[in-house]
Write a protein that binds this DNA or RNA. Structure first.
Lengths: 65, 65
DNA sequence: ATATAATGTAAAGTATTATATACATTTGTA
DNA sequence: TACAAATGTATATAATACTTTACATTATAT
């Protein structure tokens, strides 16, 4: 696992569709990011992190430490 | 100004070309990001922030507070 | 003032992000 | 089991990040 989106989503009890709507993107985008199909823009990353009240580094970079 | 790349670059006494090389991207990419021509990927954003030893939020989101 | 380094700009091309739609598969629950 | 919701997958398309090359402008130093 390379990011904690699924975990944070579970913590907030949101479906992919829910989160997509909250962030103003498509469900496929959430799915793809969650499964490392691609690398979102820093803007979307910051939006997500802010939504979950965590840092970008925490949300997207937990592997490296 | 929407990001602090130019400032951090100055603090580290690096040219755009220097920074580009350190991060493995083109000088034009640095220039474009610095001047808000586009929105980098979260991966590049994290690389940059890590390079400067600051957070992504600090580097890219100082306007909002 | 002139040379040089640094930055700005532009255009064409490639790669990747993101959308929309549709359908298949998995998971949870009555 | 059967139904519904959630997630996974596929394909086509649009938008944009990023590269390369090349040249113009601005700043810095001699």
């Amino acid at each position: 696992m390379k990011n904690l989106i699924k975990v944070e989503r579970a913590r907030h009890d949101l479906t992919q569709a829910d989160l997509a709507e909250k962030l103003g993107v498509s469900r496929q985008t959430i799915h793809a990011i969650e499964n490392n199909k691609f690398n979102p823009s820093v803007t979307l990353a910051i939006k997500m992190a802010r939504f979950f009240k965590v840092t970008v580094e925490y949300l997207f970079d937990i592997e490296e430490a």
